[in-house]
């Protein structure tokens, strides 16, 4: 079965995952959330090169966080899992008082890594399955200003072209024997780029004119009713926001900043379940 999510729904899901990743503290919850993120990632049908990229993006920092937290965990209590350098070893052992891997550090590092993995997996899935155009269309529809929305569209549409032009100018610049370290040459580097901007602005005006665009008229599409998937995403987001709010209130209570007696069951629930 193939589910097509619109960009708005994807954005809502991404925000929800981010909120939940920050909200959850219990390892079980974080594992569950990560598994859900893996499901989302698999549903995006990544090819082998994307899986490799994901592994490269995720594994080094996740592994680094777990190891560094296990090694340098400063909280109490802490249980030694493994002694890497005993304290009686000359120099390094004497200086550090021993180097250990702590169980609590390992768990803490794992929690941080799971947060990272969740956010990265869902983020990459959204980025890879949503074209900038459809993301832009969502943005444009949510704006009610034709001037602003068309400016955003054009900016994004030609961003890649301009980046490519900068690279081309740089190539020609170097082939011509010019150097960016010389002030006079730096000015030269900008000339073709500025000329391109002017020429493209004219071209864009011309095309907008021939597409019947008028900055004074409003977009005629109007607002459309959100789809069922979008509604579900909104519910998911609302749930995430509620949990995040409950967590914030509980944290404020724990910090002795704010205590609201009727919320006592909420505090308990959060401390026991989130």
């Amino acid at each position: 079965m193939k589910i097509q999510l619109n960009p708005a729904a994807k954005l809502l899901i991404l925000i929800s995952f981010n909120l939940l990743a920050i909200t959850f503290d219990k390892l079980e919850n974080l594992i569950l959330l990560t598994l859900l993120a893996v499901l989302v990632y698999v549903a995006g049908r990544p090819d082998i090169s994307r899986i490799k990229t994901t592994a490269l993006v995720i594994l080094p920092p996740a592994w680094g966080v777990i190891i560094s937290q296990s090694l340098f965990y400063q909280g109490w209590p802490r249980t030694v899992l493994l002694t890497l350098v005993p304290p009686e070893i000359p120099v390094l052992g004497w200086m550090t008082g021993g180097i250990y891997l702590y169980y609590q550090g390992l768990i803490y590092g794992a929690e941080q890594s799971l947060r990272l993995v969740t956010v990265v997996l869902v983020g990459l899935t959204v980025a890879w399955t949503t074209g900038e155009g459809s993301m832009l269309k969502t943005l444009r529809r949510s704006l009610d200003n034709p001037k602003l929305s068309i400016s955003i569209s054009i900016g994004v549409r030609f961003f890649r072209t301009m980046a490519d032009e900068i690279r081309s100018v740089y190539a020609v610049f170097k082939l011509s024997g010019f150097k960016l370290t010389r002030y006079r040459d730096t000015v030269r580097f900008a000339v073709p780029l500025v000329a391109q901007v002017i020429r493209r602005s004219y071209m864009i005006s011309l095309t907008l004119f021939s597409r019947g665009f008028s900055p004074t008229s409003r977009s005629g599409t109007g607002r459309t009713r959100p789809s069922a998937v979008t509604l579900l995403s909104i519910v998911f987001l609302l749930l995430s926001i509620t949990l995040a709010l409950m967590k914030v209130l509980t944290t404020l209570f724990l910090l002795d900043v704010l205590y609201i007696p009727p919320l006592k069951p909420v505090y308990f629930w959060v401390l026991n379940n989130i």
Binding site: S153, F209, R211, G212
Partner: peptide
């Protein structure tokens, strides 16, 4: 007014590459 004029006449400029704004 440009929108009503474009219903009568349209000008398609030379370079096709700079004339498209949308993704699809």
């Amino acid at each position: 007014h440009p929108p009503s004029l474009s219903r009568k006449v349209t000008y398609v400029a030379q370079s096709p590459y700079d004339q498209i704004f949308s993704e699809t």
